[in-house]
Design a protein around this nucleic acid. Sequence first.
DNA 1: TTAAGTGCAAAATCTTTGCAAATGT
DNA 2: ACATTTGCAAAGATTTTGCACTTAA
Lengths: 126, 126
Amino acid sequence: MKRRNTPTKQAVLDLFDSCSSALNQEQIETQLQEKMDRATIYRILNNFCEDGVMHKVIGDDGINYFALCKTCCEHTKHHHDHFHFRCTRCNQLICLNEEIKINLPEGFSMKDCNCVITGTCPDCQK
Amino acid sequence: MKRRNTPTKQAVLDLFDSCSSALNQEQIETQLQEKMDRATIYRILNNFCEDGVMHKVIGDDGINYFALCKTCCEHTKHHHDHFHFRCTRCNQLICLNEEIKINLPEGFSMKDCNCVITGTCPDCQK
DNA sequence: TTAAGTGCAAAATCTTTGCAAATGT
DNA sequence: ACATTTGCAAAGATTTTGCACTTAA
């Protein structure tokens, strides 16, 4: 399926570009200038994930957060095996640079990971 | 609020005792001998979490898994900062012994964590 | 022109809540 | 007795789907 460029998608991308943290559907919907349908946002986000533009993290709050693959991925190789941090006060979810290192027991093979640390972020610490 | 001992709760505990992996609502409901209401199961599980008998892990599939705090916690101190592994074939979620070690950047403070590795488990590897 | 994208409403999932009836202590 | 537990139904919350209409290429 060939993707097309639309103002809607661009608006979503621009929002993520201007924002350092991952965002969930609600955050996107409220931060966008123009009102946009829920279903459309989900479809755009899911397409971006399929295309490798974004990756999805499920928070400890059970909500899906999406983040651009810019800071953590190279052009050639995606690696999403980093920790995420969710501040329970401001509800921001941030991609940490720290890679996940784990020695799996015999017989287990790792394909993916979803690791979220919760606590308070520097801004909310004060 | 004082807890009471009921056959229902005991059945849930027995199920977890006979099972090495974490379980979600659906798995519990189908594995229990006697049919039991969804809401009741959720209430029991949530109470157990409050009481420190179990801990809850949200899987990368967005579903809540519950695990007894026996293998990973001491009587005096709970520590749930270990990795979990979800097999994408058999859908089992297993508590790994490996503790999570992370160097958080300046200003962040950690309260909790929810880390799930996905892949295939030894049984499904064959 | 025509396949891809959008908006709206409805459905699908998983979880929680309200309330009356049943039960443990 | 009486506060806790249970079962049922209904409500909530988040995400997906169906379908007709619009739009990019």
